[in-house]
Design a protein around this nucleic acid. Structure first.
Lengths: 148, 148
DNA sequence: TGGTAAAAATGGATGATATTGATAAGAAGA
DNA sequence: TCTTCTTATCAATATCATCCATTTTTACCA
């Protein structure tokens, strides 16, 4: 991955719908050259996905919360993973160091839907401790890793 | 925003580089109609951004950490925000309820770069307490909010 | 250093895709 | 019912992406 690839990635992070012809003129490389590099970046897995970032308030997801939880023993990891994958309002799930085992980021409609989700979480077998923190405001929320 | 708009958004979340002609045939609506709806969704701010999600391991960002911090009084919010905006390894910064004032999600190169960033964070005026949690593994990491 | 093979870039032609403008269909309100 | 606004379609044009043959560049090794 050289400087040209980094320029392509940086541009696609800013705007994933940028055309190859625009990339071509900005980077001063022919369109087929850009196109081939892009295909390789996609095939190699450097680019995981192209996605549209939506405004949460405008699609009726007004509440963000962070939930931490612990299990009585580590054997419940697989079933918990299946649960988490099926809950579309759980946006992040990390296995972490510290007092808790997992951290979750939840983006949901309102306190009612949060309450229901928390109930489902606490019903998972092996969950012995949870802590919920409500996000009051988002200072920054950058997608993914960035190329310098 | 009707069902057709939701279909467009859902598809763009899956793949932000999907062409209008593909959307047109999938949704059974003419290309100009899709194009116009898309422009409106962009102009209204429902679509905040199109971005490429990169593989952190393949762009040399191997370490994720969650940092919590408190201020001695609320007056330092503005300067802290400026600081956070300038630190590209800080991916999320939320003002939160609970024992701490802010939560940060950091994606960085290694323990050395994390240490340096933590030092800079603790140097911010008014910071009286921090806690750092290292992410061991990511179970799920979904971008943004989703349309059902 | 010079020669060779592999990789990457270019240019022009072709095919696909997007936009424009004119027009028609459908819904809401007087 | 008529008007008006919105949203759709169609056809033409313009733009864009891909393909393929050729050239240039890079990397490697004698």
């Amino acid at each position: 991955m050289d400087d040209i690839d980094k320029k392509i990635l940086k541009r696609l992070q800013e705007n994933a719908r940028v055309t190859i012809s625009v990339l071509s003129s900005e980077i001063s490389l022919s369109m087929p050259a850009i196109s081939e590099r892009l295909k390789k970046l996609e095939a190699s897995g450097v680019i995981k996905q192209y996605t549209a970032i939506l405004n949460p308030e405008l699609v009726d997801k007004q509440l963000m919360a962070l939930v931490y939880l612990s299990f009585d023993n580590p054997s419940h990891g697989d079933s918990f993973k299946n649960f988490v994958v099926g809950e579309s309002d759980i946006k992040e799930c990390f296995y972490i160091t510290g007092d808790f085992d997992y951290s979750l980021k939840i983006i949901t409609q309102n306190t009612t839907t949060l309450e229901n989700l928390l109930t489902r979480i606490k019903e998972q077998t092996g969950v012995i401790k949870t802590q919920t923190i409500v996000v009051l405001s988002s200072i920054i929320d950058r997608p993914s890793v960035t190329i310098e």
